[in-house]
């Protein structure tokens, strides 16, 4: 069986592993690295639960092979909070507005939305709904997730007090 040696930087740590070409990046993160925050829903790119940042851009980790991540930099949900005790403003906003119930889809939503909230100080509802469209949530009905995005944008782009 063919095995390929890869080197991937995930949440600031560089990992070297030998992997079979057919190993999906989502399974590499979960099974090889033990980073089970990246969830697997549909495994065909529809649900968005496995979304991660690849070189800063959101991608579906179930639609990439682990070997294709060789030499790239990845952020998973485990790498979002600034430290052990504090949450990222987007996570804080999800918590405060009840933007999750079972939480299965939440890591995917967070990773899809991170670049969006960073670049949109004051998005419209339509812009938010378009940004959410690639992720499925079966609990919330999305209303509270839209609220969370609005709050996160306010928190992240608030004028800093001197």
């Amino acid at each position: 069986m063919q095995k390929l040696s890869i080197e991937v930087t995930v949440n600031g740590t560089t990992y070297r592993r030998d992997v079979e070409p057919r190993l999906l990046l989502s399974d590499f993160l979960r099974h090889e690295l033990g980073l089970t925050g990246t969830h697997v829903g549909c495994e065909h790119g529809v649900c968005g639960a496995c979304t991660i940042l690849l070189d800063g851009e959101p991608v579906r980790s179930c639609l990439m092979l682990a070997v294709q991540a060789n030499g790239h930099t990845i952020t998973t949900v485990e790498g979002v909070a600034p430290n052990e005790t504090d949450l990222h403003p987007l996570q804080q906003a999800f918590r405060e507005t009840h933007a999750l119930q079972c939480g299965y889809c939440t890591p995917g939503f967070l990773m899809s939305l991170l670049p969006f909230v960073e670049t949109h100080p004051n998005p419209t509802d339509d812009e938010i709904r378009e940004a959410l469209a690639g992720n499925l949530c079966r609990c919330t009905g999305y209303q509270h997730i839209v609220e969370a995005v609005k709050l996160a944008c306010r928190l992240m782009h608030a004028p800093q007090d001197a």
């Binding site: 495994e43 790119g45 579906r60 639609l63 092979l65």
Partner: peptide
């Protein structure tokens, strides 16, 4: 890979060899 990998995941295709253009 946004169409090919789902096709592989569903096992609708089983190519002997993949040539990655990335």
């Amino acid at each position: 890979g946004q169409s090919l990998i789902p096709t592989l995941n569903f096992r609708l295709a089983a190519p002997a060899i993949l040539v990655d253009l990335n």
